[in-house]
Amino acid sequence: MTTQPATHSPRASGAAGAAGAAGAAWVRPVGRPPALWRLVLARGALELRQFFRERDAVVFTFALPAVLLILLGSIFDTQLNDRAIVPGIPASQLLTAGMIAAGIASTSFVNLAIGICSDRDDGTIKRLRGAPMPPIAYFLGKVILVLVTALAEVAIVMTVGIALFDLRLPTDLGHWLTLAWVFLLGVTGCALLGVAMSSVPRSIRSAAPVVNLPFLVLQFISGIFIVPITELPSLFQHVAALFPLKWMAQGFRSVFLPDSGVALEPAGAWEHGRIALVLSAWCIGGLILCLTTFRWRSRRDS
């Protein structure tokens, strides 16, 4: 699953609006700097407005995971005997849990990396640095955008899974808590990696293929499109275990599948402790990558 987010083409007025809304508009007459949380909320609101104004990109971003789930879920359920890999668990339900993870990674890693690359390429970030706004407000505004879009993505994919493939919602607090911490760690880790990845493409023209290629590969080797993951060659399973997408998908399977589904995991266990450890490690590693690799200027301005 690859996504092509909005590139925010009308940047001249958008950047000026960003600087005004998140900077000068908040300067009080007495000269005191505005509270950081107000700047963050202003920047986050601006990011959301810019995103939802690009209606075609919004539809594509939210519809693609649902469409892929409908197509692949129907194909898997038709091809596999008795519509189940193990009794009581249709292949489409395995696919739904994995597609939730892929949707989160798409909105946080892919969209964020390409969006920041666009901001850098058209000079938006450079102009914002001249506004009375601390740099952290820009990144936290992006976090608000990612959280809102990721929650919407999860809700859409879950709705499709429930309506078409009899996906069962958790019935106890423990499973809901697992859903919450896997979501938060997954969004955080993928968002930080997206910020770091934004420095790799040389320009916005190359951003989409550069960012989408590793994401597409990880989807195949992490058991998103091929279920169960044990059907993959062991080499692919070992490589996928190094990245967060595989563990996010496994965490969501532990939430939405019955206990018998654990037999489909390579280790024969849900491994919640390892999931938390790997995702937390990627949060820390992603932060280090952001601090050491992020560029404020495009390469042509260096």
Rank of each mutant, 00 (worst) to 15 (best):
T159M: 10
E47P: 03
I144H: 04
T292R: 15
C190W: 10
Q250T: 13
P10Y: 06
A19M: 13
C283F: 08
A15I: 02
F51S: 02
H8Q: 14
V211E: 02
L64K: 03
W247D: 14
I284D: 04
F215I: 00
L245G: 05
A105M: 14
V30F: 08
V58H: 06
A102T: 14
S298G: 14
D77W: 06
T2A: 03
L36M: 01
A208V: 00
S108T: 13
L46K: 07
L193H: 12
T96F: 09
V30A: 05
L151I: 07
V59T: 00
G98A: 09
P90Q: 05
L147E: 11
I125S: 02
A281D: 07
F236I: 06
K246T: 10
T78K: 15
G98C: 10
L68I: 05
M197Y: 02
L277A: 07
L245W: 08
T292K: 02
E153I: 08
V182A: 08
L64W: 09
T3G: 05
A25N: 10
P33I: 00
V200A: 00
A241T: 12
L94A: 11
S203D: 03
S280E: 15
R253Q: 11
T293S: 06
V195H: 01
P258D: 01
G194N: 02
R253E: 13
A191R: 01
L184I: 12
S302C: 11
L264D: 01
C283Q: 05
H175N: 14
P233W: 09
L48A: 04
L185M: 08
A276N: 14
G98S: 13
T230S: 15
D121F: 03
L185I: 08
R53T: 08
L39D: 01
P132K: 15
I89V: 09
L289S: 09
V278K: 05
T107P: 11
L173F: 13
R168G: 04
V86N: 03
A97V: 06
H238Q: 13
A267K: 14
A150M: 12
Q237H: 12
L179P: 11
N212E: 03
F243M: 15
R168E: 11
T124F: 05
M133G: 00
W181C: 06
A281C: 06
L192A: 06
R49E: 11
C290T: 13
I70Q: 13
P29T: 15
T61H: 07
F256D: 06
A16R: 10
R38H: 08
I125W: 03
I204T: 01
L80Y: 09
D122S: 14
A101Q: 14
G123K: 13
F294L: 09
T2C: 02
F252C: 04
L291R: 07
